[in-house]
Design a protein around this nucleic acid. Structure first.
Lengths: 203, 203, 203, 203
DNA sequence: CATGAATGAGAATTCATTCAT
DNA sequence: CATGAATGAATTCTCATTCAT
């Protein structure tokens, strides 16, 4: 019994802890987008989250861990949007390709400011494995898409997959940077799909 | 329309001063690329340049001015490499296009680290006119190239010039980020040329 | 209507913090009177208080806030000395007037050096509302005294109250500046009382 | 001959030097009153005077010397205004007294801002002999006036001369600080004269 | 001698992080 | 464990003053 209630308390505590972590993360995003990477300080985040600074450090061993967590969340959100498209059996390859890329461009645009701020705040992490990995994951889903739509091409065909990936990611980022209207973003996305669909003869 | 506060502080009147400014700029580049944007501090730059910090502030009214100066230098170098191509009368359009884009990708790759560091260090300038202008200049030459090779297309043709620009710049940046070998960079560049040459029917 | 930026930074919640604030204030007074306004730097104050400079900034958002705090303390002390006189029912008007002014001159003399140093250190605040208000409070008690002893004069009588105030304050400041002995100060004070008592026919 | 022309050159040079000194002093006053004591730096003064900073240091060994010079000038101007009154044989004692004090209050008011700025800038000189002497001179003329109008009082009469001096100077300073209109200043001055004339039975 | 160049020393302020209760 | 208190180490920038030409 004792241990039971202890367990319960533990769970409650864990729930609380989870809420605190979410709270801090949210505050971090707020600070990052509202005040900019230059004003992104742990103290400010703690204050915004209405949490003691020492508590922040209980959950995140250091500033970098917090940033990595944000990157993780952003990636999770991306995945939540894009994954469903990949398993939608009602879509033909070309259609899936187009829809996926559109969605990808739109998410990228929507999160552009946050991502830029994160990148800026993560200045000192550029060369850490963790950061590189966290960032790299961004393209994984996209590679999955490509694997899906090119599934039955004979191996050895020169398909320039890497090039396709970088072209798309680059265009998505730049579009997000340059364009403001949704229409423009979609247009960019469609042009990229068109190019790659033609190039890879996706039907 | 640069505001005073971002210019060099004074007309340089002596060779000695010119050397000092160059020295500081060089040190800034060193610090930026060697130590990263996070360690890019005016004191460190001054120390690296082996000049007193006050001397740095004699020529640059603040840290941002120094960064802007670096952007300016980097752009000058880019121009020095690319301009000649645009006026080379011996080249056909498609050829010029291909060569220009190759060169552009290569420079971008070469300066990638510095540029990324500058961008990271310029976090707080993102919204200043000066920064935006300094950055925007990067695409100007490229637009000139496009104007040159599309010179006799009927106006009104839907040529997606903006899209072409962002596609190229995005791909160049990403290539620089991802690839390490010159061969890979060139391959990316050529693929982009190929796509745009086909798309715009450049001969 | 104090602007946020000149207040204590936070509500003090622990005795320890209260002690720290008092400690810093005391150190500030020491530095100001011992080393002079020119050497009154936040770093020096922190060192004198034997606290980290960051602690100082934890409680005072900036140097001005610290100065304003000192002015506030000095004013509180003045009030602690002078208020009781104003409510002493055993005193006749003329007597109260004389005693009050004596006390005022003496306090002024005692705090002269500090006040002068504060004023000198507050050079850049001269035009801020906060500073003007903080300083103005000094004459309030004195005006209260005058209101008290002139209470039943017919309105409209030309009593030159403002002139009386400036005369007294001016004389008090100058006496503090010039004289060293308590006797001299008291003599000045009494001469001023005499003049005003005669002028205003205070009994 | 040679020595002659050398002398001439010397004189010319001395004239030039005098002009430079005047120029610097003027610039110093400008900076002090326009930018405030906090922004009163030798470099800024040199720039305002359009003189090289090293030249400033040729004529003034340090910042303090410059300030002392300003104090000197201010005192000279005061003397230029007040001296004539003291030797005007057409004035009766009381009349002279009144006129002198009016003029004194007015000058004080006119120069109040500059004097305050000088005092603030001279923060670190408070305890130097030079500063005390320079300041003290301010009351000398006033003492001369008193000596003049009290000339035939039997020695030993308790005339509270020192008190009269500090009362007047204090009132003049405070009036300058508080009042804006000339009328108010004059009214203050006249009230002070009235008090002292009555007290000292000046006719 | 006048000038441009240079600098040592220090000023205000911030920030990631730790500790004591 | 959550919180308030505390801090070491920087960071940007300034200023009085001195040199070298």
């Amino acid at each position: 019994m004792l241990s039971d209630s202890y367990l319960l308390r533990r769970q409650i505590k864990q729930k609380r802890a989870l809420a605190t972590v979410a709270n801090i993360a949210e505050a971090a995003v707020t600070v990052l987008t509202r005040d900019g990477a230059g004003r992104f300080t742990t103290n400010r985040v703690a204050e915004e989250a209405d949490v003691n600074i020492a508590s922040l450090y209980r959950y995140f061993p250091n500033k970098e861990a917090l940033l990595l967590h944000l990157i993780h969340l952003s990636w999770e959100e991306e995945r939540a949007h894009l994954s469903p498209i990949l398993i939608d059996k009602s879509l033909g390859d070309a259609e899936m390709f187009r829809i996926f890329i559109r969605e990808y461009f739109l998410i990228e645009a929507q999160e552009a400011e946050l991502k830029r701020a994160i990148r800026a705040a993560a200045v000192d992490m550029w060369n850490t494995v963790e950061y590189r990995e966290a960032i790299a994951r961004g393209s994984n889903l996209f590679r999955k898409l490509i694997a899906r739509v090119l599934r039955d091409r004979p191996i050895g065909m020169n398909l320039d997959v890497n090039f396709g990936v970088l072209l798309t990611i680059g265009a998505a980022e730049k579009s997000a940077e340059i364009f403001n209207s949704k229409a423009d973003i979609i247009r960019s996305a469609d042009l990229v799909s068109e190019i790659l669909i033609a190039r890879w003869k996706i039907c």
